[in-house]
Amino acid sequence: MNYQGDRTTGFASPAGDNIEGTIDLMSVALDLRQPSRYPVRVEGDALLGRSIRHGDILVVDSAVSPRAGVVVVASVGDELRVCELTQRAGEWWLRSSSPQASSVQVDDDTDVAIWAVATGLVRTDV
């Protein structure tokens, strides 16, 4: 049975021409079928300021162009980090949430690279 508010049996539905279908969150922010989308599990609460918690699943997209202020997954040396991206004088920097830590410049020569940009978040324990 696939009733969408249109095909009524008695009175013709006045909404017949305005059926739009349920919002599909999957196709908007979370579609992992897209070749550039990857799921990433966040470890640690350093980004609570951005409402990103330990255990959250970030959906990240490697085709999205980075912008200042976005959250990215970046490779820094041997590890992957989730952090904020900023721009200074045309250069990209990873900004630590901790005021003590200094920012790290995105630079292939020092093995700091943007892996993908966060586009959505799934929290399974609310």
Binding site: V40, E43, G44, E79, L80
Partner: peptide, 15 residues
């Protein structure tokens, strides 16, 4: 299996 099993996806430390 980073992209096909939810329990095995990439982990990244928030910084």
């Amino acid at each position: 299996r980073y992209t096909t099993r939810l329990e095995e996806i990439v982990r990244a430390r928030s910084w």
